[in-house]
Amino acid sequence: MNYESKEKEGVVIITPKGKMMAGPDLEKLHDKIKELVRIGARRMVIDLGEVELMDSRGLGILVAGLTSLRNVGGELKLARITNKIESLLVITHLSKVFKTYGSVDEALKSFQTGS
């Protein structure tokens, strides 16, 4: 797994690619998110469109990111979730916790409109 991260309109967009599963690469992503929050990022979109698989650890990273951002008054939103991830979110009832959007642009727009 690897990831790209960029900033657009004051929102950090992270795009993980491949398998979001337990391993050193996933921990790097975890560290990256923690570091971004530490240096002041408050709005974040995780674009999951290019994630093939996700396991419980991958889900844990998303939850941790959400928690840490909400603790500082920020928000983490998910974009382009695949069917598999959607069913994972539904089973774990996390679909009610995360705000999910069909595209990154929609997610960005939602930050501006405050919805």
């Binding site: 419980s56 889900l59 844990g60 990273i61 939850v63 840490s68 774990t92």
Partner: peptide, 8 residues
């Protein structure tokens, strides 16, 4: 526990 650790 830390937030990324959870149990189903």
């Amino acid at each position: 526990t830390s937030p990324e650790k959870f149990v189903t």
